[in-house]
Design a binder for these strands. Structure first.
Lengths: 127, 127
DNA sequence: CAGTATCCAGGATGATACTG
DNA sequence: CAGTATCATCCTGGATACTG
């Protein structure tokens, strides 16, 4: 998704863009939900999310931290240790997000069925 | 959003990806909400959404139609006329989406404030 | 351990031109 | 009017290597 530019524009029409620009990417939501259960270290978070690269995890948590959704605590030990957890703001975001997740679960088959139906109509799906 | 591949994978963990892959892009949500008020023709929809290109609108509505979120009716007149409207499924999706929109409206300033706070910390926002 | 720096491929989006 | 085809561009995300 290439949409990090128009955020500051005339999007008063659509504040949702602010949110979508942040949770609409591949990893943010996974990171957020992974932290739902509690604090995790970088490596733990990485395992929890799954197959995310170091670079993307680093980038994702940094953005989430900048947006005030995730809190980052550094322990000046050696080896270094960094804890990540949800902020109240991040936690509050998960409420509406879960509504969406529920919808997704309930209607996943409907969407897939619709896609299947399209296959047989001689109309291709550009892929 | 470059995430149209992993949809069929092991995303049982995260059905939300199915949804995000479809509404997380730049235009889908705008199109959906534009149709909330009722049926629109292609050109009307284009004006309603704003500065979307013909190509992107065409592509977006096709995908939404394939997913069963939008209904498309063609009138074999000349000049041609095509009406777009939400399906019950599309309408039902807007319910949780609106929760997210509300959250976005209520917390927009909080997010922006968090970003501003970061500016002064010597940490750049990569842009 | 917890990152950052580079390089690179693929996809999303936009502009423009053409068609039924 | 309602698209499709093509081309160019920018960004996202992955792989790999290096650092404190």
């Amino acid at each position: 998704m290439a949409m990090r530019k128009a955020v500051e524009g005339d999007w008063t029409r659509c504040p949702i863009r602010d949110v979508l620009d942040r949770i609409g990417d591949r990893w943010s939501l996974l990171v957020l939900t992974s932290l739902q259960s509690g604090t995790l270290r970088f490596s733990e978070l990485r395992r929890a999310v799954g197959d995310i690269s170091q670079r993307m995890l680093s980038q994702t948590v940094r953005r989430l931290e900048q947006d005030g959704l995730v809190s980052r605590r550094v322990f000046p030990t050696v080896p270094p240790r960094v804890d990540y957890s949800l902020t109240p703001l991040g936690l509050s975001l998960l409420v509406p997000v879960e509504s969406l997740v529920e919808w997704a679960q309930e209607n996943r088959s409907a969407i897939h069925a619709a896609r299947e139906a399209f296959q047989g109509m001689g109309d291709d799906a550009e892929e």
